[in-house]
Amino acid sequence: MKQKIIEEDAIRLNVLAKDWEEAVRYCGEVLVETGIVEITYIDAIIKGIKKFGPYILIAPGVALPHARPEDGVIKEGICIIILQEEVAFEPGKEIKVLIGLAARDNESHIKILQKIAEVISEEESMEQLKNAKRKEEILHLFNENRGA
């Protein structure tokens, strides 16, 4: 049985953001709109980045905004935001893709993280992700059983 990692309504393409904070806030708003987190989760993500730096960078051009389960997670899930133009945390640390993550606990989201790692570790799928023009392209990358 294949696991559905992401729903179509949790994907946004061609998003314009003036800086990293606006991009992360937008990402959090999509998690709120899709019923994955409470609004308090957004501020927790921003606060964490301001305190610890851009720890959410997981690959060149890719960020994984997230906070702790107790910061407002309703249910496990992700959203994906593809920016129109890259934004920088600092020079040399630019992002084009944000994968907002919400986990209920320390273990339940492992399958989601494995799928994210699978997609971002392959050059071809990374290019498809960064250059996606249709939501179906992202649904295919994350919801299909690849390499199985």
Rank of each mutant, 00 (worst) to 15 (best):
P91G: 07
E22Y: 09
L31T: 03
E90M: 10
E85I: 03
I49L: 02
H140F: 10
L139H: 04
I46P: 14
L64Q: 09
V37I: 10
P60Y: 05
E7A: 06
N106Q: 14
L13M: 08
R25A: 12
V97K: 01
R68T: 10
E22D: 13
G35H: 08
I110F: 06
K135H: 11
V32W: 02
K75D: 00
V62T: 04
K75N: 00
K2S: 13
I74V: 13
T34M: 08
C27P: 10
C79F: 06
I39M: 11
H109P: 01
Q114I: 06
L31I: 07
V62R: 03
G147A: 11
L13D: 04
G100A: 05
G77N: 06
E137S: 11
Q84I: 14
G53Q: 11
A88D: 15
K130M: 13
R146W: 13
P54R: 10
A132K: 01
K135S: 13
R146D: 04
E127Y: 08
A103S: 12
M126F: 07
R25D: 14
N143I: 09
Q128S: 09
Y55V: 14
I120Y: 03
P54K: 13
I112W: 00
E8M: 09
N131S: 11
P65Y: 08
A103T: 04
E94S: 15
D71I: 02
L16I: 15
K51W: 06
H109F: 00
E70M: 02
E107I: 13
E123Y: 07
I95P: 06
E29I: 12
I112S: 00
D19W: 08
W20F: 05
E118I: 10
V87L: 10
I6L: 02
D19L: 07
N143W: 03
M1V: 13
G77T: 01
I116A: 00
S108A: 11
A102S: 07
K4P: 13
E70N: 05
K50N: 12
W20S: 08
A63Q: 11
E22Q: 15
R12T: 07
G100L: 04
Q114M: 09
G77Y: 01
